[in-house]
């Protein structure tokens, strides 16, 4: 998204992670993780499976109490999990405003539901929703709180490719409107480049790479800067594009 790194630097710091470690039994999944986030900054967190991306996100969400090190996050933050995590017994609008106080909560809930193009579904049961619709409810539930930090744990991982493209566009629109700082955990390099201002790669329990995404919008996969960054990220993740035969044509791969 069009964020100038120079101005980003001037914005207030909203996340400060310093020397964070997390051990399960004897294995240290996170060893020494440190990074900062500025207000409104969209960061993608990449890493091979098992590198502790979700562990770090859960730590930021405050769901992990056994974390070591220093973490500062905004009081108002929201999480979108990989599964929509709707309560099967709560209708859509009730799910969206869950835990929200104030007389205008339901009104705001309706507003956000229409922003995720779900007006008319307020009284639906979760069982009647498609996967994409359910994830949009989950996104609405996160945004209605107007969080300063939005944590996304592979939110599009379980969606089909076509729905995912639509969700990317929707997320971009909504982030421009609500302007939260975002941490997006993903294993999809293209998704990271498409959406983020900055990419962090997690490896061996540390942030092994921290790069800005300097790709002009619209960020097309055919763009040279896109392809270059993609190669760099994949190399850092231990994937040799040429050897894996991914290099020929990103477009072709995308279409097939």
């Amino acid at each position: 998204m069009a964020t100038e790194p120079v101005t980003a630097f001037l914005r207030p710091r909203v996340v400060n992670v310093d020397g964070v470690a997390r051990r399960f039994e004897t294995r240290a999944v996170l060893d020494d993780v440190s990074f900062e986030l500025r207000a409104g900054e969209f960061v993608a967190l990449l890493g091979r499976s098992g590198t502790g991306k979700s562990t770090l996100l859960r730590a930021l969400a405050g769901l992990d109490v056994e974390i070591e090190g220093h973490i500062e996050v905004p009081a108002c933050r929201s999480v979108v999990f990989q599964e929509p995590r709707l309560l099967p017994w709560a209708r859509v609008l009730d799910t969206v405003v869950l835990g929200l106080r104030g007389d205008d909560a339901r009104q705001r809930g309706r507003g956000v539901l229409s922003e995720v193009e779900l007006n008319g579904h307020e009284r639906d049961w979760p069982k009647t929703l498609s996967g994409g619709e359910a994830q949009r409810v989950s996104l609405a539930r996160a945004l209605v709180r107007q969080p300063d930090l939005l944590l996304l744990d592979e939110p599009f991982g379980a969606l089909d490719a076509l729905t995912r493209i639509k969700m990317h566009a929707l997320l971009q629109t909504l982030c421009r409107r609500y302007r939260p700082a975002v941490v997006l955990v993903t294993h999809d390099v293209d998704e990271a480049i498409l959406l983020a201002d900055r990419v962090l790669i997690l490896g061996d329990g540390r942030i092994s790479l921290d790069v800005p995404v300097d790709v002009p919008s619209p960020r097309l996969r055919t763009n040279h800067a896109f392809a270059r960054l993609r190669s760099q990220l994949l190399a850092q993740l231990g994937v040799d594009e040429a050897a894996e035969g991914l290099h020929e044509s990103p477009v072709k791969e995308y279409v097939s």
Partner: peptide, 19 residues
């Protein structure tokens, strides 16, 4: 996971029991 959700949306103890 539902308890986790309750925590992330800021439901208190009574709210969690009720909802």
């Amino acid at each position: 996971r539902h308890f986790e959700l309750a925590r992330t949306v800021g439901l208190g103890r009574m709210g969690t029991i009720r909802r």
